[in-house]
């Protein structure tokens, strides 16, 4: 069994975790074009090598960030999202409908 080091709970069996996808910045949903938004939703870097991703420890519903080598299948580092997000991400209010 593969062991993943959860920043909150320590080393745990990989079965306790869910892969949450690539760590990419979310575009402003109200101001991005269809192409930008579909790229965010559907397209993948799918890097062969070191990637940065979201993971979730399911028993605690705790989301964290992992740096992982997709060729060697090795976790390099896992850390709490507060290392990246110092404050809440806010988007400007949506433009008024019809404008």
């Amino acid at each position: 069994m593969k062991i993943i080091n959860c920043p909150l709970n320590g080393p745990r069996n990989a079965q306790e975790f869910v892969h949450g996808g690539e760590f990419v910045a979310m575009p402003d949903p109200h101001r991005s074009s269809d192409a930008e938004w579909s790229s965010f939703v559907f397209l993948e870097n799918n890097t062969a090598g070191v990637v940065r991703e979201w993971w979730c420890h399911v028993p605690t519903a705790y989301w964290f960030i992992a740096e992982r080598d997709t060729i060697k299948d090795e976790f390099i580092r896992t850390y709490d999202p507060s290392e990246v997000f110092r404050e809440r991400v806010e988007f400007a209010k949506p433009p008024a409908q019809g404008s």
Partner: peptide, 8 residues
């Protein structure tokens, strides 16, 4: 359960 370039 998760993506990778490996056939183990």
């Amino acid at each position: 359960p998760y993506p990778r370039y490996q056939t183990r």
